[in-house]
Amino acid sequence: MVATVLHEIPLQGGDVTDGVVRIGDTVRRPTCRSSPAVHALLRHLEAVGFEGAPRLVGVDAAGREIITFVPGTAGLTADSVTDQALERLAGLLRGFHDATAGFPLAGHRWEGGSNDDAAPEVIGHCDLTPDNAIFRGDRPVALIDFDLARPTTRLFDVVTTLRHWAPIADPVDRHPLLRDVDAGARVRLFCDAYGLPSRERRRLIPLARLRFGRSYEMMRARAAEGGGWARMWADGAGERIRRAAAWLDTHEDEVHAHLV
């Protein structure tokens, strides 16, 4: 019998994690300090029947985590930027948050990062960029890359997601497919689809502003560690955060009008 040779196919798209490869129907990723917590979370999501995340298979001989490969497309496409896709993404994030109910908010070591000052309610993905959502057409089917997941509030994770998907950003930094959209209208659409109550919508803009400030400081500090964070910083991540904050200051009234 001839042994089957499984080839490693490098997977691109993430900003921080290097060395992610596909082997057959699995993905191999280097572990990090939050991996035990993430593995516990993935096992919990499987146990409660949440379909929108890869399954944890184990750890290979090289010490890499093994998770199932989710077929589909990551990144922004004409299909994934539609209003229907945005509504469905909000529903997927809501389903993820609901699925974390019962998972302990304490007792695990998570990757640090900016956060809400309010008491944690759920485990947030905290990095739901277009590279970390898998779509089939205009339907998001899975969230991937949970390295930055941590206890937080629903609103913080919503704000983090809208940063990239509304997007709350200066048009000069937006993807061409989102450059001319009405970001305020997309914020409203997402909040409606998620089911965010009025009291939380009133906190959305102040929390976005708080997040910009803390994200800037956090990313600047991590850039000193080298690796992916340093590459992002050198590529202008800090300047993009500053421009996004300035855009929000200028357009706050317009965004707020969509939230009342």
Rank of each mutant, 00 (worst) to 15 (best):
A37F: 11
G228E: 14
W247L: 12
T68K: 02
I9M: 11
D170K: 00
Q84S: 10
V172R: 11
L41K: 07
R199G: 00
V21L: 13
G107S: 13
L196H: 00
V20G: 14
T68H: 00
R174D: 06
L177Q: 09
F69S: 08
R211L: 10
N115S: 15
R163C: 00
D18I: 05
D131W: 02
A61C: 10
R188D: 06
V57F: 13
R243A: 10
G49S: 06
T100D: 13
R214L: 02
L162K: 03
R214K: 02
G24I: 11
H125Y: 03
M218H: 08
A208H: 05
R150L: 10
T68V: 06
R199N: 06
S34P: 13
F135A: 04
Y194P: 15
D18Q: 14
L178P: 00
R136E: 15
I67D: 04
L92P: 10
V38N: 14
D18Y: 07
E65H: 08
D147K: 03
A169N: 11
R179S: 02
A119S: 14
R222F: 11
L56C: 12
S215C: 01
D131I: 02
V38L: 11
P71N: 13
G14E: 12
D83G: 04
R139I: 09
A223I: 03
T73I: 05
I134D: 06
G52F: 08
L105D: 15
E239V: 12
D192F: 01
T73Y: 00
L11K: 09
P171V: 04
A230L: 10
V181S: 00
G24M: 15
A62H: 09
A142Q: 06
I241V: 14
R201I: 03
P71L: 10
V255N: 00
V57H: 15
R94Y: 04
P10K: 05
F96V: 08
E111A: 12
S198Q: 15
R211W: 03
V20Q: 12
C126V: 05
L42E: 10
E200K: 00
E252H: 09
V81L: 09
G14W: 12
V2W: 09
L143M: 15
P167K: 01
R186E: 03
D235Q: 06
R199D: 05
L128H: 00
D79Y: 00
I168F: 03
R55P: 08
D253P: 08
T73N: 04
V70S: 06
A257N: 07
D83H: 10
A133P: 08
T26M: 12
E111K: 08
F212M: 00
G102S: 09
L259W: 02
P10I: 12
E239N: 09
R174W: 07
A244S: 13
L143Q: 06
A40Y: 14
I168A: 01
V187D: 01
R33K: 09
D83C: 03
R220L: 09
T31I: 08
A223E: 10
E252A: 15
G112E: 12
L128T: 15
N115Q: 14
V159F: 01
A237K: 07
L76F: 11
D117Y: 13
G137H: 03
H256W: 03
A169F: 01
Q84E: 13
D170P: 00
V59Y: 04
C191E: 01
L45V: 13
D180C: 04
